[in-house]
């Protein structure tokens, strides 16, 4: 009898304690979508230590680049939905469906935090024979195929910007692919490519040091980080329909991750984002803080996917029509 009571008592205690109340019970794994030293990598490594402090657990980060980030997405998706594997990524998965890189994208994940977004800038070799967007377009028109544009693969930021540019002007250029913005900017400085569209944060230092020049900011207005560089709409107002457009960076967990884990992670990264050091870092690198999660983040992701998918589809870059995946027209 006493034994039975004891057993019942133990059972009661066990069920009363939610199993995940003490999430995280062990170290977590962070899968970074792009290579070491790139834009995504640097942001994740800068923010995560603050989140670790808030959660009291370690996030062991690992770079898993390749396939425009698709390898990291598939890998994270193949793990258990327990909140112990974080996907630390950029905007690229939202184009996988139309690009034919698989059916898994952010719709299969829960946003923990959308950390920041960036504005693209078109940079060129410092001795390129053009200084602004109109001159560049004219030069390309006069010298078809000779200007070399850098790219980071199908669905990478440069491919979308190129599609956007090509939708309004005739850009007959040679596109040379690299494995990320780091290697491409190295190639630009060595003269292997002439022009490269890249997020401002990654190129800012090189521009300020005079190692490359900014041709135009791909936005509706000039950017405070790059005063004096004209926005692209100044010469071609038509681009305003696509803008603002830009890359974003965030952290995701697999769908069906327990509520408690998601809440803990969201709170930890929201705290981390507010850390003055991280805010200063974003500011210095020309990124715009976002700090949104949940439904708000989902809305942003859906809109981004609709704008970009149709853009690349209409420029002929995409493999499949967005209609096939019920992605609405913007």
């Amino acid at each position: 009898m006493t034994r039975k009571i004891l057993g019942a008592a133990v059972a009661a205690v066990l069920t009363a304690t939610p199993v995940l109340a003490d999430f995280p019970a062990k170290d977590m794994q962070g899968i970074i979508m792009w290579g070491a030293g790139g834009g995504t990598d640097v942001i994740m490594r800068a923010v995560t230590p603050h989140a670790e402090k808030a959660m009291g657990a370690k996030v062991v980060m690992q770079n898993m680049s390749g396939g425009v980030g698709a390898i990291s997405v598939k890998y994270t998706y193949a793990q258990k939905a327990d909140g112990y594997t974080l996907l630390m990524g950029a905007e690229n998965p939202q184009l996988y469906k139309v690009m034919g890189l698989g059916d898994v994208d952010y719709a299969d994940f829960i946003p923990i935090s959308m950390l920041a977004r960036g504005v693209p800038v078109i940079v060129a070799q410092s001795d390129a024979p053009f200084d602004n967007f109109r001159e560049m377009v004219d030069y390309i028109e006069a010298n078809p195929k000779t200007v070399k544009f850098g790219s980071t693969g199908p669905g990478g930021l440069p491919s979308v910007v190129n599609a956007m540019l090509g939708s309004q002007v005739n850009l007959d250029v040679t596109t040379v692919p690299y494995n990320g913005d780091g290697p491409a900017m190295t190639a630009l400085q060595g003269g292997a490519i002439d022009v490269f569209p890249v997020v401002i944060g990654a190129a800012l230092d090189h521009i300020n040091a005079g190692r490359m020049k900014a041709i135009a900011v791909v936005d509706t207005e000039a950017n405070p980080a790059l005063p004096g560089v004209q926005p692209i709409v100044e010469d071609y107002a038509e681009y305003a329909t696509y803008l603002p457009w830009g890359p974003f960076f965030g952290i995701w967990v697999k769908k069906d991750t327990p509520e408690e884990a998601v809440t803990t992670l969201q709170a930890a990264y929201a705290d981390a984002l507010d850390a003055p050091e991280f805010q200063a870092f974003l500011d210095q690198r020309g990124f715009t803080p976002m700090n949104i999660a949940g439904d708000e983040a989902q809305e942003y992701l859906d809109r981004w996917q609709s704008v970009s998918s149709w853009l690349v589809y209409e420029s002929g870059l995409a493999k499949h029509s967005p209609e096939k995946f019920d992605i609405p027209r913007p």
């Binding site: 290579g35 070491a36 030293g37 990598d41 640097v42 490594r45 800068a46 230590p49 780091g182 050091e277 200063a280 870092f281």
Partner: peptide, 11 residues
């Protein structure tokens, strides 16, 4: 590349 990341983290 990782040491570059570390320098960023340290401001």
């Amino acid at each position: 590349a990782i040491i570059i990341g570390a320098l960023f983290v340290h401001g």
